[in-house]
Write a protein that binds this DNA or RNA. Sequence first.
DNA 1: TTCTAACTTGGACACGTGTCCAGTCAGGTG
DNA 2: CACCTGACTGGACACGTGTCCAAGTTAGAA
Lengths: 192, 192
Amino acid sequence: MSTLPRRGLNARQAETVQKLLDAAAQELAAVGPEALTIRTVAGRAGVSPATAYTYFGSKNHLYAELFHRKVLLEHPVEQAVEVGGRTPVERVAAVTRHLATVLGASPHLASAANHALLGTDPDVERLRIVIGAEIHDRFRSALGPDADAELLDALTLALTGALLQTGMGLISYDDLADRLDAVMATILRGNA
Amino acid sequence: MSTLPRRGLNARQAETVQKLLDAAAQELAAVGPEALTIRTVAGRAGVSPATAYTYFGSKNHLYAELFHRKVLLEHPVEQAVEVGGRTPVERVAAVTRHLATVLGASPHLASAANHALLGTDPDVERLRIVIGAEIHDRFRSALGPDADAELLDALTLALTGALLQTGMGLISYDDLADRLDAVMATILRGNA
DNA sequence: TTCTAACTTGGACACGTGTCCAGTCAGGTG
DNA sequence: CACCTGACTGGACACGTGTCCAAGTTAGAA
């Protein structure tokens, strides 16, 4: 499956993939990440399980792809950063608030992705790197081009940890944004 | 299973549990987290699978318990903090270095626990909270009793994120200690 | 010693995962 | 229009998970 996820899909294939992703999003919202199976998603998409496995080699891959599209691609943050404020603290807060909002709107997806992105499939690995880079870039554009690498690292790790704890239920989605604000401000203090 | 993990085990049961945990550690080191199954662990422990499921309701529970015992209970950090240095930065570094060392010695366990602690079983949830509290306490004793809550939060989240990324392979165990040093120092700057 | 409560066992069960492959179907090409 | 390539299908397969239960076994009480 490692070759199939995006590159070089013809129209028909792309449509099949889209149907699967749409069905997965619906199924996820309907029954949650535990109850969802590839076969029910395939059924909902009007496609055979074998076909589903052609495009998504594992449930993890499906979740990771869905997360990437729904959370990152469909919700770019450029404007949030630009209108987010004049200081780095404000712009960083805009990044994390934006993410918290998007995730809070799809808690099932967030929790599913939490598990999925830990997977070892090559497909998941690829998406993990893409997603990590995207987060990194968002912080970089919030901090400006001459940001300290260690600082970026600290922000990214703290965000990662917060998302993890949210997925585990230790932080509620309602609290996430505020918690992140406070943590980011704490980290930035002395590093602005 | 939620009632059985620790409380009120008689000698025979405690021995069974210990045999299972020992077998799990061996199996984990031998074949890695993916290939391990409850049944092979039970076999190695000389116990039936049904018995194994009596004490560990899921593979996640088994991993979480193993992690808690091997990483936290068998490796208390008190002395590390005490001899770690005089400044908060040095003592925090002692905590994270200590953890990084222990985890680096059992990468399979670390990665298994990474997955497992995300589980939804009640047993896992309980251990998650216990483990989280333990980490929190370590930072608190490193920072002193009057530590800022937001600062503690930031350190904990960054550590969590770093452990996550290590489990995912984005940070090597060799780099982990140094990365953590740098990140912790960055966060502490301006918050000492 | 005998009894009893409990821990343990073997084995079946339903279910999900991911793989595989021979066969079917559709759409564009000649 | 017949063809042919590539996507899709159906269904079996091996495997692991976690559940269940009737029967066996063991340790400690009477």
